[in-house]
Computed example of a mutant assay.
Amino acid sequence: MIQQANPVAFKEWAVTVDSLLKGELIFVLRKGGISEETKHFALSSHQFYLMPAYEHQKEHLLKPAYQGRIPDTMKGWSPDQSEMKLEGYAEAVEDILIHDMDKLKAVSNLHIWTDQFAEERLKWKKTEPLHLIVLRVYRLMEPVTTAMQDAYRGCRSWVNIEESLPELQYEPVLTDEQFSIKYKELKLALT
Rank of each mutant, 00 (worst) to 15 (best):
L20M: 07
V17Q: 13
K11N: 07
E36W: 01
V15C: 09
E24D: 15
F27K: 01
H40V: 11
H40M: 05
A14M: 03
S19N: 15
G23S: 09
Q47C: 05
S19M: 13
E12M: 06
S44R: 10
V17L: 07
F41M: 00
I26A: 09
A9E: 04
E24W: 06
L29N: 11
L29F: 11
T16Q: 03
G23P: 13
L43N: 07
V28Q: 12
W13N: 02
H46S: 12
R30H: 12
K11R: 04
A42R: 08
V8T: 06
H46K: 14
K31N: 13
S45V: 02
S19D: 14
S45L: 00
V15P: 05
L29A: 09
T38I: 03
A42K: 12
E12P: 05
H46Q: 14
A9K: 01
S45T: 08
F10V: 02
T16C: 06
G32C: 06
L29I: 11
G23T: 13
K39H: 11
E36S: 15
K31L: 11
H46I: 06
Q47S: 13
K39P: 04
E12R: 02
G32L: 01
L20Y: 10
V28P: 01
F27P: 02
A14P: 07
K11W: 04
I34V: 15
F10T: 01
S45H: 11
E24C: 05
A14I: 07
K39Y: 07
T16H: 02
L25D: 06
S45M: 01
F41V: 02
V28T: 15
T38D: 14
F41Y: 15
L21P: 10
F27I: 10
K11E: 04
S44W: 01
R30G: 04
A9Y: 03
G32N: 04
V15D: 07
A14C: 08
V28G: 02
V8A: 01
F10W: 10
D18I: 00
L29H: 08
T38E: 12
S45W: 01
I34E: 12
W13H: 08
F41G: 00
F27R: 02
K31T: 14
H40L: 06
V15A: 14
G32S: 04
V17A: 13
K39Q: 13
K39M: 08
E37T: 11
S44L: 11
G33H: 04
S35D: 15
